[in-house]
Design a protein around this nucleic acid. Structure first.
Lengths: 153, 153
DNA sequence: TCCTAGATGCGAGAGATTACCATCTGGAAC
DNA sequence: GTTCCAGATGGTAATCTCTCGCATCTAGGA
């Protein structure tokens, strides 16, 4: 029935992540609202690294009163709190990822699809001290740009 | 964000890069216009990874008729042609880099400054075949996010 | 049940780019 | 040197992606 198959994270994982998410919020004294839970769940279910607008569009049928501004605000604050990650795709709208484990992103420069990968070589990468003198490293963001199978001619 | 001070690339390097740039354009049959040369030169001189708007502002005194739209178009096409690189900084305006050699970017999450670094460990990084099955890798973009010396409290 | 800091909804507005189109021009052909 | 035209530019409107201000609402502690 669905023309474009949505890649979904396995339901048990989603359920566990949502439980952990709610627990973390409560532990940190962050208010748990239906909107926050819904946004987090939608992102956890979706493997396509959706934009804020896409998350909103997906939730709209179920939460008609949900405001796009609220989705932007929620994703921004979750990123700041380290509960989701903003993915750098350079152009167009910002995209988000509920996967906080160590991984890299394959970005297709033709269709814009983003896929998680875990390359042990890259995951193991350390930083030489000299390269970052005077700089406090907080995050290493690795983007692998190219063409996905569908877009290779 | 505080304004980014302009750090300049050594003049001999800039001159050589500009010559190579023009030669490459001619070799590829890409039309060489005063605007293209000026935009490329401004970017080559500037180590601060300026935005399209910053490039335009810098050229305006010398080329009062230069349109911002033209600067955006030129930078976009140079990026597409592989003659400059668009730097991923995730938020705000897109930033550009004339340095096409292998290097990574230190991005300060407080002031937004971007600095080139060359970490041998990262430069040497290879990709496991399994991680990118069906994906043609064209570029490895590594962003090191944290706080620069000035913004560390 | 009450209270309030913080969250939400909505509409206006800002910033960065992109589209459109009339005009101009680099450089190949003569 | 002159002609010619595909492609580049300038100016402006439109778009896309958020962000802000503010009135209202609500989660969750007292």
């Amino acid at each position: 029935m669905t023309p474009v198959p949505v890649s979904r994270r396995p339901a048990p994982d989603v359920a566990r992540w949502c439980d952990e998410f709610e627990a973390t919020c409560r532990a940190r004294g962050v208010r748990v609202t239906p909107q926050r839970l819904a946004v987090y769940r939608a992102l956890a279910e979706d493997l396509s690294h959706p934009t804020a607008e896409a998350v909103w569009a997906r939730l709209r049928p179920r939460m008609p009163s949900l405001s796009p501004a609220t989705v932007y605000r929620i994703l921004e604050s979750l990123d700041r709190e380290g509960l989701v990650r903003r993915v750098s795709v350079t152009d167009g709208a910002g995209r988000f990822d509920a996967n906080r484990g160590p991984h890299q992103h394959l970005v297709c420069r033709v269709c814009g699809r983003v896929r998680d990968v875990r390359d042990p070589t890259l995951t193991r990468v350390g930083l030489g001290r000299d390269a970052v003198r005077g700089f406090t490293v907080e995050e290493l963001d690795i983007r692998i740009v190219g063409r996905c199978g569908r877009c290779r001619k």
